[in-house]
Nucleic acid binder design. Structure first.
Lengths: 335, 335
DNA sequence: TTGTACGCGTTATCAC
DNA sequence: GTGATAACGCGTACAA
């Protein structure tokens, strides 16, 4: 069943069928109705490959994600896919992992499939040393890139993110305001976003003339990310003689580990220990009391990624960088 | 840069270039080397649309998933995508939601994009009344379907699942063996898998000649699925005068809610309350003590989905149904 | 308003 | 082994 069959059965030329198909050009209402009827009757569906060949597009967006199993990223995945679908774009998924070589390969594969654009989820995709970002610049020469929660100034690269710096600064201030003195800062990732968050923590202390004690800033091993692992890490920190009355982390899952630590050593929240997480994910509701967490507006960010992409694809101009503000959601783990 | 350019620069015909490209037919080693060199030099990448048009395939698999944000499904998504990628297949994602109309639409959209096969994640995709499954039978006439954690006997539909019936039976038996008398069974979904699980619970009791008390079997509202919601549901159950010394659920997240309930009312695990979850997801590690959970071997299932799909696409025959056995992972929430 | 004819970049079937 | 050439199914100038 192709366009020729339809044109024959409808007694018109393929050009007319094509016009009806694409809604566009001028076709007499009568012919249109007739052709539509024939198409419906025959259950005709235009061949996407042939159409792609001609239009150089199959209305497909590449979604790159280091790890689709991650609670935060999978949430983003869900928002993005649904929003793109509303615009009749399908999403090609690529779970690349964090290694540069794999990310590059992921981008190239999607490039070879001629997606219309790509969304790169998380600041993992941007390397600190700019030489490593050649693959991004190269991709951006061929199609628009939208970066979720990352920043990279480059033509045809559009960034949508939350002000992580301000967010952790606000969280730190809140802890200080509620009487905490020794705030343990725990983080997993040294990428752009991770650095901004840490900088916010430092800045909050410095702004008040408080010392930044480096032994309260702890990078957790990247390969031990389960909640019990994190609990054990914190137990070890305590065992090493470091005292803290609050835990601020770069991810909810870390804070869940902190809550677990608190239970084990019988420290009550928020009296003996305050905890703040990041992302306001479903993990923050798992603990008792529930965790105060920084809501970085994932849904808003994702929707903005999609509308930015749509604008760019439509030839309109879009802001190179859009920054939203996070919001602290206060729950039982803080005063 | 297309096949003509390459053939011209290499001084051969496009047929030869095509042969080199597809590794197949007889080409003299010398010509092959030369053509490969030219292709590399020019950075030539064959056009996927044109290739798709000729081959009627773009090596793409459709992944349908009611909700990519779900902890369990996103894990599956990750496993599936990576395994397919190893076989050089890309994945087109469709988060359909649970409504039949939307699922049908998702299938049809992927059908129109001429994916080579589809994986349907979760038993949500199979309707109880078979009339609702016409969309599956229809799709199966055109391409192979692999169902993850669902069963539907139909030509060209391949099912990969865990024996949920036996799994909950085993879990129930374990609770009974460790001295529990009143096991509250909580579930969220009435789909195929949900029914099997419940049946396993009933069967375990019946096999021991114990009464199945319907007021210990509770269906939780589908739209209130957050941990605090579930905690409140359980509090309400208790308030209604129902006594229980164990909670068995169809999903880890429900059991996390149960653990939260236990904390609120100061019931200690496992002495005063035993809890078993399902899926052995990261949620089961969030609680203190950690939750005993039924591991339904998601990674194994996913890998099997992929190898089944590959076999079918290669024209080999594959088992219509493959059933794995779940395994109870014992942790602190049970004796 | 409608139709003709060509281009899109491959693969595949023939001949040679 | 290699080279013409016909599909593949659709979009679209251009002509009518």
């Amino acid at each position: 069943m192709n366009i020729y069959d339809i044109s024959e059965k409808a007694g018109v030329s393929i050009a007319t069928v094509s016009r009806v198909l694409n809604g566009s050009s001028r076709v007499s209402p009568k012919t249109r109705e007739h052709v539509l009827a024939v198409m419906a009757e025959q259950g005709y569906v235009p061949n996407a490959f042939a159409r792609g060949l001609g239009l150089k597009s199959m209305k497909t967006i590449g979604l790159l994600c280091p790890n689709a199993a991650d609670a935060y990223l999978s949430q983003a995945l869900n928002y993005l896919e649904r929003a793109f679908r509303v615009h009749e774009y399908d999403c090609l998924l690529s779970c690349t992992g964090k290694a540069l070589a794999d990310r590059r390969k992921g981008v190239e594969l999607l490039l070879s499939k001629h997606v219309d654009g790509m969304v790169l989820m998380g600041s993992t995709f941007v390397e600190d040393q700019d030489a490593g970002n050649e693959y991004l610049r190269n991709a951006a020469r061929k199609l628009p890139l939208v970066l979720l929660n990352a920043s990279y100034p480059c033509d045809n690269v559009f960034c949508v993110l939350c002000d992580d710096y301000r967010a952790t600064m606000e969280a730190t201030n809140y802890l200080l305001d509620t009487g905490c003195k020794d705030i343990l800062y725990l983080y997993h990732s040294r990428n752009y976003s991770g650095q901004k968050k840490l900088a916010g923590y430092r800045a909050a202390l410095e702004n008040r003339g408080l010392p930044v004690r480096e032994n309260l800033i702890r990078f957790l091993s990247e390969d031990k990310t389960s909640v019990p692992d994190i609990r054990d890490d914190i137990l070890a920190i305590e065992a090493s003689g470091i005292h803290f009355d609050a835990v601020l982390s770069s991810e909810d899952i870390i804070s869940v580990g902190a809550a677990k630590y608190a239970r084990v050593v019988h420290r009550r929240m928020p009296d003996s220990l305050s905890i703040i997480g990041y992302n306001n994910s479903s993990y923050s509701l798992c603990c008792e009391p529930e965790l105060t967490s920084m809501d970085n507006k994932l849904e808003t960010l994702c929707n903005h990624c999609v509308s930015t992409m749509m604008a760019v694809l439509a030839g309109q101009d879009a802001p190179q960088k859009t920054v939203f503000t996070a919001e602290l959601v206060k729950r039982g783990s803080t005063r």
